[in-house]
Amino acid sequence: MVGLLAAVFRLFGVQRANDVFIDEVTYADIARQIADGHMPSILGTPFFLHPPGSYALNAVVIRVLGLGGHSMDLALQLRWVNSVLGVMTAVVCFLLVRRLAGVGPAALAGVMLASDPFVLRMDGRLMMETPAGLAVLLGWLLMLLALHRPAGRSRLWLEISAGLVFGVAIVMKDMTAVFTVVPLLAAVAWRRTVPLHTALRVLACSLVPYLLYLCLIAASGLFGEFMDQKSVGVLRMVGAVQMTGFNSVHSVSLTDRLIDLSSRFGTSYLLLGLSMVAGVVAAMSPLAGRRLVGLFSVFTGFVGVYSVFFGAAEEQFGYCVVLAGLVSTPVAAVMVLKWRPRLRG
């Protein structure tokens, strides 16, 4: 039912979506290049600022469905891919929260994700965040399944699967390493939430997709160009170089923009703000699964806060923060109600 609701919203939303964002046209053109068997490039220069995972996925769709036309036409057609992935994300969110807090909180989280206006806008655009966000949540769901299994072959396969899915997320957008690998390593130290051997196996598998990508670049003789562009990308992420986002354009006030859009995205802003708070509460749980998701929410929320004040404050950075808030907030609410039953009303 959550998936059906998400599909209905996206079915109508993608046809009434916002104007084409400039990055969508660029990403559609890169996907076409990969579909034609070429390395990603912009104006004849190899493009390594972002990894090619999401572009490769769209390239497969282009080849299978025989899509074509102008880059803008192609972007509008490929928006449907993200809409389908957004439906899958809502279902994975429901399954994840159900394991942590029960069916009721999971249904609430799933409905909120299915209908959240900010998420709907992102799922209705050809952006990297939707496929990357799905991979992040799916990886954490597999991690929870692994933690509840005794040592053995089935747990090992779940750990390998979780690592590979985390790796897919990273090869779609490398910033997701902060939403996957970093919380996983922190979980080893925080009250031994994840056993060290489990974390190492998952970490090793998460490196595989990106290492394959690096091998392809090295074989093409473009590793130096890759390092140059990636170093600029890291400097942009930490805010040392301000090229995009609200912090780079001082004539545009982020506060004024948030106020202008509060009537449309006010609930989304609430979820953004709750991500770190709910994550801290969940990280205090006696249950390992809740602590793990709490750490995921804490680090994801920290990236959002840091980007607003110091980094590249771009709108799309909030996508995974909303996902983390939707996963951790129901868990935190259940915990608070257990501690303070009088708050249930």
Rank of each mutant, 00 (worst) to 15 (best):
K230M: 00
S231R: 05
S231L: 10
G233R: 01
G233D: 03
V234C: 03
V234L: 14
L235V: 02
L235D: 03
V238L: 08
G239W: 09
G239R: 07
A240W: 15
V241L: 14
V241W: 10
Q242L: 15
G245F: 02
F246R: 02
F246E: 04
N247L: 14
S248V: 08
V249I: 13
V249Y: 14
H250C: 03
H250N: 10
S253C: 10
S253T: 08
L254N: 08
T255C: 09
T255F: 14
R257H: 14
R257S: 15
I259W: 04
I259P: 00
I259E: 03
D260L: 10
S262P: 03
S263L: 14
R264I: 09
R264G: 04
F265V: 07
Y269W: 00
Y269V: 01
L270H: 00
L272H: 07
G273I: 02
G273Y: 05
L274E: 02
S275R: 01
S275E: 03
M276S: 05
M276C: 10
M276Q: 05
V277M: 06
V280T: 07
V280S: 01
V281H: 01
V281I: 15
M284S: 07
M284Q: 12
S285V: 07
S285Y: 05
P286S: 13
P286H: 08
L287C: 07
A288K: 13
A288G: 08
G289V: 06
R291Y: 03
L292Q: 09
G294Y: 00
G294M: 11
G294L: 05
L295Q: 08
L295N: 03
F296A: 14
V298G: 06
V298D: 09
F299G: 11
F302L: 15
F302G: 11
F302K: 01
V303N: 12
G304H: 09
G304W: 10
G304M: 11
S307H: 11
F310V: 14
F310Q: 14
F310G: 01
G311N: 08
A312Q: 13
A313I: 03
E315R: 11
E315A: 12
Q316Y: 14
Q316M: 14
Q316E: 15
Q316F: 12
F317V: 15
F317R: 15
